[in-house]
Design a protein around this nucleic acid. Structure first.
Length: 331
DNA sequence: TACAATGATGATGCCAAGTC
DNA sequence: GACTTGGCATCATCATTGTA
């Protein structure tokens, strides 16, 4: 059996480092590794992570399965001073948080540009309107740049023109977290509803987490919606919000017209475009979060911006007197 | 001071349970 | 069985803290 780090040190042998552990894991058949830091290594696997966790713990002499860690729900393995996290390979990288949609859009546009070799006009064709971006020479994904409340996911540029678009998948009902932005408002709403006896806030006796007995949905002013959805960089004449889960079939290039037509479900350039499905604030339990009452020492209550359709079922039921399982309070 | 570790937050997707 | 909802798993990124 190999000696573990501390004993090696005592016996004058060098401590193993992360490179040694990588080599050892590769020798055991774990080829898909990602270094997180000098002490943390991700082992990316397909299939059941728990099984891999148990197997690896047995395969690595002296390895210990630490069950409580913030880095992974299933814990991690401590081995030779290195923390090993077992992560699913399928949800790493951009695909993990929905950036695949903007990647596909940018990739398809740039493919056409490369093939054509000159600026093209791009027409986004939605059910409610169409939008033309003229003389485009490049598509960039810019979703990572959120400084100054920028919302654009993709930027089209060419010959002095700059167009910014935010993307939402067809099935996306979530707009963003609002723990920070709505902390004070959420706190006021909760306090008011507790006073009115419409909701109750209880501390879980087994933890420090608080729970509401009912979720709370609060409407937003049009100006708030505009700020949340369009941010500081999406303007009506030079961009908008594109609703679509893109696929290869959505793209058609007409060589005669030099036009790339991209099918989208809907194009939003104004709050009125939401119709009756405008975003609302949903205040709900989430035991993993510090949340909107954290400054009062109460963890576990989260604020999110979601589509009205996400909470509408409860509203219909409320109007019909019979409530669903936990129901929602509307303010 | 630089780097690593840790914690908080924003974001997306999935699934179990409740209801019709 | 289909649909809705709440809860949670998991990711990236950024800020803060700790340490060599």
């Amino acid at each position: 059996m190999e000696l573990i780090g501390a004993r090696r040190l005592l016996e004058g042998q060098p401590m193993v480092n992360i490179v040694d552990v990588e080599k050892q894991l590769k020798g055991l058949g774990y080829k898909n590794l990602r270094r997180e830091s000098g002490k943390t290594l991700k082992v990316l696997v397909d299939g059941n992570r728990q099984e891999v966790m148990q197997r690896l713990t047995h395969q690595l002499p002296g390895a210990k399965h630490i069950r409580t860690t913030v880095k992974s729900s299933i814990g991690h393995i401590e081995y030779e001073g290195i923390n090993l996290l077992i992560k699913p390979s399928a949800v790493q990288g951009r695909a993990a948080y929905g950036l695949g949609n903007e990647d596909l859009l940018a990739k398809k546009i740039n493919q056409v540009l490369t093939t054509v070799g000159k600026p093209i006009n791009i027409i986004f064709a939605g059910s409610n309107r169409s939008f033309t971006a003229s003389n485009i020479t490049e598509a960039q994904t810019v979703g990572n740049d959120t400084t100054g409340f920028k919302k654009a996911d993709i930027r089209l540029t060419g010959q002095g023109n700059v167009y910014n678009f935010s993307l939402k998948k067809d099935n996306a009902e979530y707009w963003e977290s609002a723990d920070t932005a709505f902390r004070s408002e959420a706190s006021i709403i909760i306090t008011k509803l507790i006073r009115q006896g419409k909701v109750r806030l209880r501390k879980d006796p087994t933890s420090k987490v608080y729970r509401l007995d009912r979720s709370i949905a609060a409407s937003l002013h049009p100006e708030e919606i505009h700020h949340l959805v369009f941010g500081t960089d999406i303007k009506p004449n030079t961009g908008g919000v594109l609703i679509r889960t893109f696929s290869d079939d959505d793209f058609y290039y007409d060589a005669e017209k030099n036009e790339l037509t991209i099918q989208v479900t809907k194009i939003l350039i104004d709050v009125a475009d939401f119709g009756d499905n405008a975003p609302v604030v949903l205040i709900r339990n989430d035991a993993t979060r510090a949340g909107v009452l954290a400054d009062k020492g109460m963890r576990g209550i989260r604020a999110m911006i979601v589509s009205a359709s996400r909470v509408r079922m409860g509203e219909k039921k409320a109007q019909g007197q019979k409530l669903l399982r936990s129901s929602i309070v509307y303010v």
